[in-house]
Design a protein around this nucleic acid. Sequence first.
DNA 1: CACTTCAGTGGCAGCGCTGCCAAAATTTTC
DNA 2: GAAAATTTTGGCAGCGCTGCCACTGAAGTG
Lengths: 343, 343
Amino acid sequence: MTCAESEPALTPADQKSPLITLTDVAAEAGVGESTVSRVLRNHGSFSEKTRAKVMAAVEKLGYVPNKIAGALASTGSPLVAIIVPSLSNIVFADVLSGVTKALEAKGHQAVFAVTDYDPAKEEALVAAVLAWRPAAVMLVGLEHTDGTRRMLHASGCRVLELLDIDGEAIDIAVGFSHHEAGRQTAARLLESGYRNIAYVGHDLKHDMRSGKRFAGFLEGLANAGLELAEQEIRDAPSSVSEGRAGLADVLSRGRPIDAVYFSNDDMALGGYFHCLAERISIPDQIALMGFNALDICRHTPQPIASVFTPRIETGRRAAELFLEGAPSQVVDLGFTIVAGATI
Amino acid sequence: MTCAESEPALTPADQKSPLITLTDVAAEAGVGESTVSRVLRNHGSFSEKTRAKVMAAVEKLGYVPNKIAGALASTGSPLVAIIVPSLSNIVFADVLSGVTKALEAKGHQAVFAVTDYDPAKEEALVAAVLAWRPAAVMLVGLEHTDGTRRMLHASGCRVLELLDIDGEAIDIAVGFSHHEAGRQTAARLLESGYRNIAYVGHDLKHDMRSGKRFAGFLEGLANAGLELAEQEIRDAPSSVSEGRAGLADVLSRGRPIDAVYFSNDDMALGGYFHCLAERISIPDQIALMGFNALDICRHTPQPIASVFTPRIETGRRAAELFLEGAPSQVVDLGFTIVAGATI
DNA sequence: CACTTCAGTGGCAGCGCTGCCAAAATTTTC
DNA sequence: GAAAATTTTGGCAGCGCTGCCACTGAAGTG
């Protein structure tokens, strides 16, 4: 739960002037401390004349309020913790943007950390951020260690789980169903007449959500009495190169393949590049389908078919729900299959 | 400097149990508060027996130390603020990863914010983060408003400016010279025999660093007595679609062009897609050169020539310098021109 | 054996702010 | 014009922790 880590080296720059405090401002303005506090937070009542005096003193002294002290004195904290699996995937950066944009307008500050898709690290990071007594903790996905869950419950702060709704939410979940996305993708491919379908994916053990899509996809095929013609699951994070190598591998096996479902757009883009390089005609010889509908895949010579996911919206909505003090709930923001030129 | 924004709504979840404090742990363990504090921070001396008692109490009560209180009591703060222009550009996400990875090992916590390339917003965000009394503030680039500089100076905390060294640093700067990168890119293109060179760029007013590369590039051409054959500067953030449209535009003007320098790899990738779509042969008909050496551009059918920039390394190094308490300095991490199949 | 030494410990005063309460100033009311 | 209602204000006790200092008792010293 708590480990005695060795001290972080604190501010090395020695404070030249002992920083201005609220008391200094009060003295300068010739009013009481609480009055300054009220004016600065625009909270409670005070006269216009007082406000002017205080603001003048603040300006003159270059006072910057100390939120650390403020947060300690008032019990609530304006901090929101955001813990994401990775930043190299644009998906999480999008979520982060959405969250911070909605938060900053309300005077909240984001503290954040990256888990590298490691649940144990997530647990450690949750412990670390809880020490800051955040008003809310945002996590990606619904899968967490028991320790993480326990700490989160005990902390009493709001918990927002993002980008997934397939499972049990701790408090609020905002996202969409990956399982359903996988299912519908399969349905769409079948509708278009493809029957020899391959899957090229990445590291399922760590990326739970791509695993859920894969399961949904298989279910979609099974419903039509079909199964995957080929599959290649790379033991690495998703990337263009893995996607390219993965498709190359699948095709090298010689079995006829008329469509390929990739675990996401990075992988699909790699597959697309493989086809371009090998002069494999798309979609005549082979159809490609990705996931996320990244901007980049909309601007390839032939736009790659994909599934649009509301990433920024997920972040924004989560922040809003938290700000509103919404009750525990699961918000399904849905997804949209976008046809490209590749199916 | 400071504005009276209206209150953020604080923790809406009502604390069920008045959270465990260090005093509770001390009582449970039958020792003094300072002893618990010493054990938990592994600081000062205490017996193994005491340590065990304290840890047992911590475990039993599920105590999570309150760093807000800790930071207030000790003057230094283990918070580091990171302010980036954007998150949609992978470059800044990389820097962020580098920074947080190096920081978390040392018990520091990152707080972060996004400016959207707006210096005024940067100033507001600096004011906001300074209220958390961070041990360091990390910013991208060397261009800041006077207000930002003034606040940063007055704060007395370390200031790290990342990804640029062409200019006056406030405290520590870590990065490389964009001007020089532009110059060397021009030299390289000239070396390869190209003479009818075009530039396709994005929004220079906001992205200072791409402006510096452009200036360096022009200088490189001028040194050889040349100037740009064509140029197209999009009034938008860099993206694949802008790059594609930009190149299309330049080529439509009918002037012979044998090489194109793009403001970055996103733009270059767009240009590459345009060539693929229009069956323009690369590099026979036209050579392409980007900037950043993104992974994705290394895996296109023909790898796109680019300039590798040490992004994660910049973040890591900056964090290390801060942790070491290094003196003010400018660290040039350099860059590397990487040949692709497109020049 | 009286002396110093020092690891191990507890007490308590803040850190800079907010929240509460009561006092003071102002306005309203009859 | 005095009383009542209201607005504005200041004082001060914490928030939960750390840093300092003083204290303990066991070990080391001559």
